[in-house]
């Protein structure tokens, strides 16, 4: 009896530890107090209005100077990067997963490990390596280097997700398609792709979210003019913690939940 109560308490404490900070940020984002966000001073949507560039009654001293246009530019860069990397890494990751799963070749196991390494490689190491590589080949840091750099590890995530799906797929279905006259490409389009679609879609989603969120690696390989959202937020924090950051964090959380929820919904409908 006593043990169960202890366990219940532990459970509550555990989830509070994880979710309380996030809940606090969300609450603070509606706090009207411009000076000390830890003291509740009434409900406001001003911080949201501020980051959307609308009129607010907030005095300049409690906001980051000249931040909103930069924020919008960073969001735009982040989306450009995320959409590009998602498209590229989904195509390459899926192709690699198919190759490793369907063809027998020497050292297949070795290649499989090579494809997993970027996921466990320390971000700092990958960041430094990419930076030095780009400098060595004389490539100026820009949005392009961010996209190329992020793809090096996002491909791994897509590869893993699609491989998991392929492992459960019956090869004889592809053979049946060929048997009935379909060329390899027709088989891929009509049989293989529909069967692994949930895996491809899941991999793409994962790539998108990780790309939007990546700070460390991107920080190394971003040009000075090309700031992504995480880098921009990092820059804001170094100038002090001001309330609008809460609103940005809350919106990012919301976007992630919407994207992940959409993914789960589409996936459940497929079954």
């Amino acid at each position: 009896m006593k043990l169960t109560r202890l366990l219940t308490l532990y459970g509550i404490a555990f989830f509070a530890f994880i979710y309380a900070p996030i809940a606090l940020v969300m609450v603070y984002s509606f706090n009207a107090n411009p000076v000390n966000m830890m003291i509740w001073d009434g409900f406001t949507l001003d911080w949201y209005r501020l980051i959307f560039g609308m009129e607010t009654g907030i005095t300049e001293s409690s906001t980051y100077i000249d931040s909103t246009p930069q924020l919008h530019a960073a969001v735009r860069t982040s989306f450009v990067v995320a959409f590009s990397t998602t498209a590229i890494s989904t195509v390459f990751g899926t192709a690699l997963a198919l190759a490793v799963a369907r063809y027998r070749f020497r050292l297949a196991g070795f290649y499989r490990v090579l494809l997993l390494v970027p996921m466990i490689m320390p971000d700092i190491v990958l960041g430094i390596a990419l930076l030095i590589f780009f400098i060595t080949i004389g490539m100026n840091l820009s949005v392009l280097t961010i996209i190329v750099g992020q793809c090096t590890f996002l491909i791994s995530y897509v590869f893993v997700t699609v491989s998991a799906r392929l492992a459960h797929m019956d090869v004889s279905v592809e053979e049946a398609s060929a048997d009935l006259g379909a060329t390899p490409f027709a088989t891929f389009r009509k049989v293989t792709l529909p069967s692994i679609a949930p895996g491809v879609f899941g991999g793409a989603l994962l790539a998108f979210i990780i790309s939007m969120d990546d700070l460390v690696i991107t920080y190394f390989i971003a040009g000075t003019g090309d700031t992504t959202l995480p880098i921009h937020i990092w820059g804001m924090l170094r100038r002090g913690i001001k309330p609008e950051i809460n609103a940005i964090a809350t919106l990012m959380l919301l976007a992630t939940i919407v994207i992940a929820g959409l993914g789960l919904y589409l996936r459940s409908r497929q079954k």
Binding site: D170, S172, V173, E175, A176, D179, L180, V191, S195
Partner: peptide, 11 residues
């Protein structure tokens, strides 16, 4: 054409 042991139907 083949009738497969596992049927191999397109689900």
């Amino acid at each position: 054409n083949t009738v497969f042991q596992s049927y191999a139907l397109f689900t």
